[in-house]
Simulated scan of single mutants.
Amino acid sequence: MSSSPSRPGDGPYTARTPRVVAARKLQRRAERDETGRFLAEGPQAVREALRARAVRELFATVEALSRYEDLATAAGDRVSVVTEEGLAALAETVRPQGLIAVCDHVDVPVPDALARTPRLVAVLAEIRDPGNAGTVLRTADAAGAGAVVFAGDAVDPYNGKCVRASAGSLFHVDVVRSPDAAIPALRASGLRILAATGYGDIDLDDLADEGGLAAPTAWLFGSEAHGLPDELIEAADARVRVPLHGRAESLNLAAAAAVCLYASARAHRKTRAH
């Protein structure tokens, strides 16, 4: 990709330039699925996409190229300069930061993710809210998870809101898209399957005190509106509830996932220390 328009003197690309028009189509899932590409917006996402070698083209305004010289240098001849109007056509935020990358999909098959023997995996079962899904992905990365599985009728991990909510973590962990929760494969890899549910028969604190989080673990999380499907709850090795010490009725999905994943991370840290 060129850092200047295709013909000398053309000036920066606009919203009507064919390459911008083509990239804008990636805001639609059907186009993302067909091309195997997606948009990553903002300096943090672009930086991590460049590190992951996933960037095909970087659209940037003149001001952004000056502000983020390191990213412009890293992108090299993949930079395409756009007008503010052209950038706005690609952006999905109210105040875009001048950088939007066209990236290749980064998801991997289940066997490839499990071949790296992760000690912690998050399974997002039919979670359809992209903000929640991206936040759980970011939390899983922070807690040291090796893979995040988008299972069943889950949101597209390359949805713009999901990508932004992940804050670059999409490029740090193995992202898996699976028609099911892949429980047999997870269990065969030595992972204990824990279902996070408000109706669980064991308290998370009790499970941690009993040493039940020390083993490699795959956590199953369901949608905030409907929870986990019954078949996944039944297939789990244990059904775990997050304790509520105050008067709140429940935690939202992202908060509950953070509590569970960090409880596992702490248990794994103690295991390594011994």
Rank of each mutant, 00 (worst) to 15 (best):
E92F: 05
R16V: 05
D237H: 09
Y262K: 04
G134F: 06
T61P: 04
R56G: 15
T135A: 14
A54S: 12
V62D: 15
G198F: 08
D129C: 04
P5R: 00
P8A: 15
E48G: 04
A265Q: 00
R95M: 08
P109T: 11
V110D: 05
P8S: 12
K161I: 10
E224W: 05
R67T: 15
T14R: 13
F150M: 03
R32Y: 02
H226G: 03
Y199W: 12
T83I: 02
A218N: 10
D230E: 14
L50K: 06
R16N: 12
R138K: 15
L186F: 01
D107T: 09
E126H: 10
A154W: 10
A248H: 02
L220R: 13
F171E: 01
Q27P: 03
H172F: 02
A91C: 11
S189L: 10
R128N: 08
E85F: 09
V149K: 04
R32H: 09
A235E: 07
V121Q: 09
H226D: 14
R24W: 04
E69I: 00
G76M: 11
R29F: 07
S264A: 13
A196L: 14
G222R: 11
T217Y: 12
L213R: 07
G168R: 00
Y68A: 13
R24Y: 09
L186K: 02
T73Y: 03
A248W: 00
P8H: 15
S223C: 07
A101T: 14
A185K: 08
L87I: 11
M1R: 05
R19Q: 15
E231A: 15
R116I: 05
A30C: 05
D230Q: 13
E48A: 04
A208V: 00
P8I: 14
A15L: 14
V46E: 12
A89F: 11
S6T: 14
D129V: 08
D104K: 10
V62W: 03
A267V: 08
E234V: 14
L26W: 08
R95P: 15
T139K: 02
S189V: 06
R192M: 06
D129R: 07
E48I: 11
P8Y: 15
A142D: 06
L213F: 05
V240P: 06
P184Q: 07
A23G: 12
R119Y: 04
E69M: 01
A147K: 07
N252E: 01
L87F: 03
R138V: 06
A122K: 07
A54C: 08
I127M: 11
A125R: 12
V81W: 08
A147F: 03
D153Q: 13
V240T: 04
A40T: 03
G146D: 08
R164F: 00
P184N: 06
D180I: 02
G198V: 01
S264L: 13
A154S: 15
E210I: 10
P118L: 04
H245V: 13
A40N: 07
D77I: 12
R78E: 10
A196W: 01
P118K: 11
R241A: 11
V163P: 00
P96H: 00
V94Q: 14
A22I: 03
A52K: 14
A145Y: 11
R78F: 06
T61V: 05
D141P: 02
V21A: 12
G98V: 13
A54V: 11
I127K: 00
L232R: 03
A122Q: 07
A236C: 01
A167Y: 01
V176K: 01
G212T: 09
R24C: 01
R32F: 12
